[in-house]
Write a protein that binds this DNA or RNA. Structure first.
Lengths: 212, 212
DNA sequence: GCGGACACTGAATGACTGTTCAATTTAAGA
DNA sequence: TCTTAAATTGAACAGTCATTCAGTGTCCGC
């Protein structure tokens, strides 16, 4: 199915080490020692340096693999998609990446904090893509005119990325695994629904300006 | 205004160390050395251990201070607030905490990852409070009936916490500081608007089931 | 002024860190 | 089968880590 599901025995030593590092760095941060990564992958510490040059080299390799995995899903999106389908296509594409591996989700959450080059690239790319999509949608008349154009992309991204960023919280507060395929499906539908029709009835929130 | 704005010279050594740790742990993770924290606070490493027992003790103290700071804002919320004002009251209260200190925002983001007791408490409390508020709102007829009751709290939290979690991303992609008072005001209004009326026109997104 | 409690320092300790490197095993090609 | 290159190891190095502790200073009650 996905590269994350291949058996460990099928991977080269280099790839095994990189996968182990992906999991450990994501779970416990970049402070994890080279020895721990090497032990988890089943090799000696020296081999890690042999293959990646240094600990920073290892991190860069993990970053690069996550980066390409994430971006290639977006590059295969048909560029001439009609605006009314773009939102769902993007949501599906993202769900596909995120649903594939818990390690990658954890690593992405950490990228958000540590501001490694790969992390900034991925998330900035998401912002740019969302912005592009919304502008297309706007030209097609699909967006309410009285909403803030500069702020819209982040509102959409909040709804879409919320489950990723809050996955540990959700895991503790709902029964089902947050990224079970079925949960993702229902969530995607609910999110598109909120973005198109809102959650509250208009009576619930006053239409006056916000409180400072 | 807030405790975070008192001058460093007004703080006890213990508090200075704790504040330095808050900033450094948030920015660079718990891997930051005791020596670095001590140097940043202007004391010797020994004093940190003298006051907090150990590095874990320091972390626990930082956690506790963040926890009480966050929760006390919610405890002063009037319990009998009419449902139609609760959403805004909560949003304002949260904005107040988050707007006060960039260090606390950064630390909260890290809590989401590292699952320290304080972090899980804060976010679980937010989920519970949101759930309570939405049930009140539902009883008052303020919520569209055809939305998922179990999923609603996380949709609301995604919209509210999105800017917190994505702050570094936003910082890179918009001109204004993400938590400038004015930006927070406009955002709160826009978020309530999205939650009540949606962002898209209904024509833009098909009403059929979601794509797998 | 005296004495004891507390704040604080700086050096020491042993464990762990990333990295280096010579030695050894494995794989492959001729 | 012999040769050569690559893969892999384990011991070693210097540095940093959290923690301990004996010692110095500083304030407060008497």
């Amino acid at each position: 199915m996905h590269s994350a599901t291949v058996l460990d025995s099928d991977l080269s030593a280099r790839a095994k080490i990189r996968e182990a590092a992906l999991g450990l760095f994501g779970r416990s941060g970049f402070g994890v020692s080279l020895r721990t990564v090497a032990r988890a992958a089943g090799f000696s510490p020296g081999l890690v340096v042999h293959h990646f040059g240094s600990k920073d080299g290892l991190r860069a390799a993990v970053d690069a693999s996550v980066l390409t995995l994430c971006l290639e899903r977006f590059e295969i999106l048909p560029k001439d998609l009609p605006a009314d389908r773009l939102a769902r296509a993007m949501a599906d594409s993202l769900s596909d990446v995120l649903g594939s591996s818990a390690d990658i989700r954890q690593y992405l959450r950490r990228c958000l904090l540590d501001e490694t080059p790969a992390g900034t690239t991925i998330f900035d790319e998401l912002v740019a893509a969302t912005r592009r999509g919304l502008m297309l949608l706007e030209r097609a008349g699909g967006i309410r005119a009285d909403t803030d154009p500069e702020w819209r992309p982040f509102q959409v991204l909040s709804v879409i990325l919320g489950p990723l960023l809050m996955e540990p919280v959700m895991q503790r507060n709902i029964g089902e695994p947050a990224y079970a395929p079925d949960a993702v499906r229902r969530r995607t539908a609910a999110n598109l629904d909120v973005l198109s029709r809102g959650l509250f009835t208009t009576a619930a929130v006053g239409r006056d300006g916000p409180t400072p």
